[in-house]
Design a protein around this nucleic acid. Sequence first.
RNA 1: GGGCCGUUAGCUCAAUUGGCAGAGCAGGGGCCUCUUAAGCCCAAGGUUGUUGGUUCGAUUCCAACACGGCCCA
Length: 495
Amino acid sequence: MSGTTTEEPDDGAHGLPALIAARRAKAQTLRQTDRSAFPYAFARPTPVAEVLGAYEHLQVGEETDERQRVAGRLAARRGHGKSAFLDLVDRTGKIQLHARSDVLGGEAFERLTSLDVGDLIGVDGSAMRSRGGEISLRVEDFQVLAKALRPPPDFHHGLADVQTRYRRRELDLIANEPTRKLFIDRAKIISAVRSYLDAQDFIEVETPVLQPLYGGALARPFTTHHNELDRELYLRIATELYLKRLIVGGLEKVYELGKDFRNEGVSTKHSPEFTMVEFYEAYADYNDAAQRTEEIIRAAAQAVQYSGEIDFQGSWRRVRFVDAITEATGIDLMAHRDASALGREISARELGLATDGLTWPQMADDLLAKFVEPTLIQPTFVFDYPLELSPFAREHRSQAGLAERWEAFAGGIEIANAFSELNDPDVQRARFEEQQSLAAQGDEETQPYDEIFIEALEQGMPPTGGVGIGLDRLVMLLCGRDSIREVVLFPAMRD
RNA sequence: GGGCCGUUAGCUCAAUUGGCAGAGCAGGGGCCUCUUAAGCCCAAGGUUGUUGGUUCGAUUCCAACACGGCCCA
């Protein structure tokens, strides 16, 4: 063998650098031998799924002279000397290509079979069904559309490393068909939500992401700085207060769909930036809001043909907050209406829940989160929250100390939150003052006093029902994922 | 913040009580005109996450750290 192998100059490169060098050398050859090796466009390819659908009728071994044009990424190659099978993948599916030296000519055949898995190509070929029974295209002409200089992840095993899948989502999308489907389904869900609201005459609006004051939820904000104005600004934690000002303004039915930001811990259910839709309807209350929420989520489930264990099509269960806690723990919240009484009751029942230093509403919230929420698999509205947990909700029309607020749960997680919106400016002012007092006691998740919002309410806001739906969590449920990072394209990661 | 688990070739995964780190795919050189995880032959490919420690010898045992996953708070 000595002196007979000259095929590859050994520059000492191994591993990934060698793989890249080999591909770059091929790219260089393409540039030198084919002036159109890196074209600017490839006119109107047909989606693979459409081609496959059009030739279901072909018999095994049947060939046609109907030319089809497809474009996509080379996913596999099975060479047979003077012929070869290749798999081409686009957004809609995978189609097999059959290349024959006698059809293409030796030079083109050689050029095609020397491509690498991962390269992007465009193909014109005639439809056929192979002897193996697979609908295929016999390649008659092809064009390299872009050379891949880095090797793709293994197309058969997919990309398994979770960290790489999140940090390099493009590789996840290339290698894992379920990931492609997930994000296409996510788009269908978002689109279904918009379509519902548009069809019901809600107006889509855009309110500030950078806000002088944050509000509308109990959460810590991100802060940033505007150089020209030389002032601190907050990234919004909710769109609530601006949307209600638009209700004051007479837009009557408005919605905003977009990102909110909360400077809190990350978990499988929490992301520092997340997608929320909030919609507000004048002259409606939280009962109307519940009905709309059922309808929206029903439409979203239908959009992705959801067929899991959760029944989104029927009418959702409704349970009162205090009843849900009594059912789960035996505790009668209303009979223990202060922190020390409830703390004693929780301790007496040995629920394993810490109570030291917690306020009554915090304990009530903890009881729901720990003993009720995980059991709510089928869609459920939990109605009538303690007033203290709901600074923007009206007090219940017949039950003192409770708010006209519900949260919706499914699959054991919270997916939506709604109120009969508080529209009495003097009561709202008092609620802000309570929040300020809590902040003074060290609570970091309180509402800053928003005088402009109060003045807006003083102009008169009609009775209004408002809802916020966490769309990432909705996607999780409808697409069967158990982590929010799975349904966000580029989740936040440590450096 | 705490506990448990993980990190080995471009990708997917092995490695016995601590004893020369292996395979499939991809990539390179050949053969092959219906395969589909194509097949066959040949050659090549590794700072075993990082830094220390124990040891004659560490992917393996210990510690710290980094990143990630799961559970708990």
